[in-house]
Simulated assay, not measured.
Amino acid sequence: MIFARVPKHLAKAVASMSPEMRKHRYLTAAGFVIAQYLRKNFAAQRLQNFLEAYRDPSGGMSYQYSTSVTMMGETIFLLRRSPGFTEFCRRLKSRDLRAAFLEALAARLFMQGGCIIHARPESMNKGEDFDFSVVRGGEEINVEVTSLTSPVFAESTLVNTLARKKGQLPSDKPAIIVCMYPAAWFADDPTAALYVVANRFFGKSRRINAIVFLAEHWLSDEALLNGGLIVSRQEFFNGNPRHPADLTFLRQELPPVPTSVEQLLINAVPVQQESEFYRWVDACLA
């Protein structure tokens, strides 16, 4: 099995894992990927808030840390063939880690929808300072990514944030805003509240074709000191955009968010089997 644009020494490092390392093969491989492309040793540096809670109560590595590192390594690996890859690596090396990784995670979402990802350094010019662009079927779409951290949902805050982000996108091409919000905002299904926000926003702007809302859901089993992460996603589309675009690749039926660690782990099996990163690790160790 051939995996393009993977340095030979990186594949060799994975293939040469010790028996102890192989117990955590995907985490270890993700660490190798991060070291290769970002020149960062995450196991030693415990970097920033993104990788908080390094130790669990028993003194071992926490599932939050291992999950975050694995997801970052996988995302970097999957983006390696994109034209914007070098720019994403630059951001991950030099900028706030959480913000830069969210941009890479959003780019991965579009890549999995069949898009080619382009990115460039910040221009610092209003209307030109968006995060990346995607091309699919010859159609170019600009994308801006943002996240909110306020502890409580407020409709006006979310609408105002979207309005500010709109200003960073050019008005001459289709555009999408990707917005990560705290899962704790909603105890129940957030669809109705997000629908109101999207409609209110689209009612005042034709520049944005769609909003993609993301939320991180951490599930844990305290007795087992185990857990995992699922990123939920909901899309809302402008019925009258200035520049219509084919966004059918975003309209995907997603499974319900798991409510237990057991269900999360069951759901993860087919996802891992489909991911090029996990297949690469398994092939290296075969």
Rank of each mutant, 00 (worst) to 15 (best):
P255T: 06
W218K: 06
D189I: 00
G228C: 13
K93F: 01
D129V: 02
A13M: 08
A11C: 09
E20C: 03
E235P: 00
V33G: 08
Q272H: 14
V257Q: 07
L109M: 05
A268W: 03
P182M: 04
S123F: 11
D131W: 05
V261T: 10
E262Q: 01
R136Y: 12
A192D: 07
F277Q: 03
D189G: 02
L285P: 10
L247A: 01
T86A: 15
T75H: 13
P190C: 01
R279K: 13
I230K: 09
E140H: 09
W185K: 03
R251D: 11
V261N: 03
L97C: 07
R164E: 12
R81C: 11
V281N: 09
Q64W: 15
A223T: 09
T248I: 02
L247Y: 02
S82E: 15
F132P: 09
A175S: 14
M111C: 05
I116Y: 02
F277G: 01
F77H: 06
F77E: 02
R206Y: 14
A286S: 11
V152K: 15
H24L: 15
L285I: 10
K93Q: 12
Q45H: 06
R136P: 12
A43C: 11
Q48L: 02
A210S: 13
L38G: 02
L194M: 10
R98F: 05
R91Q: 09
G60F: 11
L79A: 09
K165W: 05
K126G: 00
Y63F: 15
Y195A: 09
H118L: 04
E222K: 12
E139K: 10
C89L: 08
D131M: 03
H118N: 13
V281P: 06
L102H: 06
N238W: 04
E74M: 13
T146I: 09
P182A: 03
E262Y: 02
D172M: 05
G203K: 05
I266M: 02
A184W: 13
R81G: 03
I34E: 03
F202W: 12
A192C: 01
F130P: 08
C89M: 12
V33Y: 11
D129S: 04
V269L: 12
E222Y: 04
T75G: 02
V145F: 13
I76N: 10
R22T: 15
L225Q: 15
V159K: 11
E74N: 05
V212N: 04
L219I: 14
R164Y: 07
V281E: 02
Q168V: 04
